[in-house]
Amino acid sequence: MIPLTWYLVLSAVLFCIGLYGVLARRNAIAILMGAELMLNSANINLAAFERYVAAGSVAGQVFVIFNIAVAAAEAAVGLALILAIYRSRDTVSVEEVDLLKG
């Protein structure tokens, strides 16, 4: 049997890698990919807690399904925004998109 801690540590490692990707990459699509990885690590946590702490309930899996739905919406709108920025600014590097910078 796998200890609960293993799942939690794996999820923490994936979350921190995703956080690094969001903070350190320059390409807007790479940042979006990092955010997706962070959402995935949260999903692992929800599923693991349901399995080990709230056994017999399906609330954790229901939460994961809603989380995946929200992540899909986020990816679609995020990529649409990136495409719109690419059309108007001809770049997807977040450092060159500084229209609102004072």
């Binding site: 923490a12 956080l19 350190a24 990459r25």
Partner: peptide, 27 residues
Amino acid sequence: SAVRNRQWPLALAVSAGLLAVLAVALV
């Protein structure tokens, strides 16, 4: 163009620090 932005060492430090805190707390 560079893969990482100028603040990447700070980002690495924040991510590694968060991972250390989380790992200790979770274990």
